[in-house]
Nucleic acid binder design. Sequence first.
DNA 1: CTGAAAGCGCTTACAG
DNA 2: CTGAAAGCGCTTACAG
Lengths: 339, 339
Amino acid sequence: MKLTKRVTIKDIAASAGVSTQTVSRVLNNHPDVSQETLNRVKRVIKETGYSPNILARSLIRGRSHMLGVVAYGLKYYGPSRMITGIERRAAELGYSMFLHLIHDPETDDVEFQINSLLAHQVDGIIWAIPDIGNNRAWAHTLNQNFNVPLVFVSGMEKPTSLFTVGIDNHAIGKIATQHLIDGGARCVGIITGPLNWWEAQQRQQGWRDVLRANGMEDEEQLVTVGDWNAKSGEQAFNQLLEQDPYIDAIFASNDQMACGVLHAAHRQGRKIPEDLSIVGVDNIPEAAHFWPPLTTVRQGLQEAGVLAVNHIDQLIRQSNESQENPEVIVPPSPYCNRN
Amino acid sequence: MKLTKRVTIKDIAASAGVSTQTVSRVLNNHPDVSQETLNRVKRVIKETGYSPNILARSLIRGRSHMLGVVAYGLKYYGPSRMITGIERRAAELGYSMFLHLIHDPETDDVEFQINSLLAHQVDGIIWAIPDIGNNRAWAHTLNQNFNVPLVFVSGMEKPTSLFTVGIDNHAIGKIATQHLIDGGARCVGIITGPLNWWEAQQRQQGWRDVLRANGMEDEEQLVTVGDWNAKSGEQAFNQLLEQDPYIDAIFASNDQMACGVLHAAHRQGRKIPEDLSIVGVDNIPEAAHFWPPLTTVRQGLQEAGVLAVNHIDQLIRQSNESQENPEVIVPPSPYCNRN
DNA sequence: CTGAAAGCGCTTACAG
DNA sequence: CTGAAAGCGCTTACAG
């Protein structure tokens, strides 16, 4: 399909009867070009549809205007929202986005991803992989040779000196649980995410802290572990009621699992919210249209993505090490679709 | 944060006491290097953690191993799946993916997107924006100067000579409608997507054709138009029953609108599937866990993404114009979560 | 088996 | 206001 050679700056220079650096001046809006020359060059550029080779420009300028983003699939709502925020803000600031998806965040080869992005000369890297098990150990071994700005999105267990934009998962757990208690719940079960996920732990901790603050007990029988999918929500619900039949409220650590809970509750003929109240997390678009509508806590993931890009842009531009504030926490928005 | 200058091939050459092209030979696995030299160079590379600047390599080779992907947001399930397929396959074939999201597919500046990708010297472009209104007019005006492989994913009203990977939306409409009729429905309403979307039209046409084939009428009162969102499904459902109270089955053109229908049906106390049967499209992960589970037709969007990458890779590598088969249609998978 | 030279397409001081 | 020269980091013929 390569029918024609791409037009280069030399072609433009020749057609306009000027040197290449005069064309370059026009392209980069340098002031010192006579009106006449300017017009001529611009006309030729327009006629040929020429646009400069960004690769060559990046090579010489040492800036590529490309951002590397490593993210966790698109299977869940959270990562998708975050990528949306990142992409939007990156585009606004004139960056193109290299997207690398990781499908198994515990085992995939981190170094390969980083090296590939570095080899492509990205100006910065946004690491949007959840903190699971030991999968961020590499971040603590980065030495000073690592010379490209790196920002983490979503909190991590052991913060590094690197910039992090976090979600307040502890607050999410607290808000959700408090809402259930405020609604009259006396026995609040929890369906957690996989407990090697930092976010899942934090949400559970929020639940625990609120129960204690309210003089309620956070016994083991009130806890089951899900895998973020709706099916696991169903199973966890059944297990939870076996463990403790007095449960009258459930905090599901995401909306998909909450969806499974609703399903199982309907199947058993339990009335919601009369017999059982439920709160989820994420505010997926369907949540408001489940039956009954699902009350849920919204994470500011798109906002987090925007903040991450803002910050990395700053790091790229100033290129110095002064980071007064290595962590930003985005607060959740409580009580979506309150019923 | 740029503490150190990046290591270049010159540094490696100097450290190893060889010329840069010998280093280049090692990097590119050229055979003509003595074992001794090879070892020495490899050791230096390892020690310094050097990896070649892909920009410089791309510049000289005229191949960037970058794919430009223009897609429609991540708000809906379909586009996300497609991007997942594209990214996965691209990574397997050694491409990095430039992702540009378009948020308003009817009005956003197409030329800007294309030019930006071309300026970045992508090896090929995958256009994954739905065919809406007149938003693909540009594709028909591409002249021979366009020298980069371009593949469309998702069908279009007026095919170009360019390669297209399509979804058989007409078949989707037929399968869904036939399923409802097979289940005993006598009066099948439809909630379409916005009718300036080619896919929405095609699904409706499938519905229409099956009704006629079964000797049923496709009257206007059986049709309402939604906007793909759950809320519009609710509204459309109410409107549909006002238009024709005898409707006993609904084909919702996607699962989110079907979710809204379920919601509205529950609200009105209608029993599903006794009073009303419903089929959606997409098989979103929650569909199987709605109450009752939603029967739905799955589009092969991830597969379509994979096929698009396969084909563009072929175009890039052979760089010729012989395209025997300018269109591939991915068939749907019927009857997910059948009830 | 190895290196000197030219060049990919651009930009950046430096002269004039 | 404009151009000759050097160079970004790499690879590709071409000699030897």
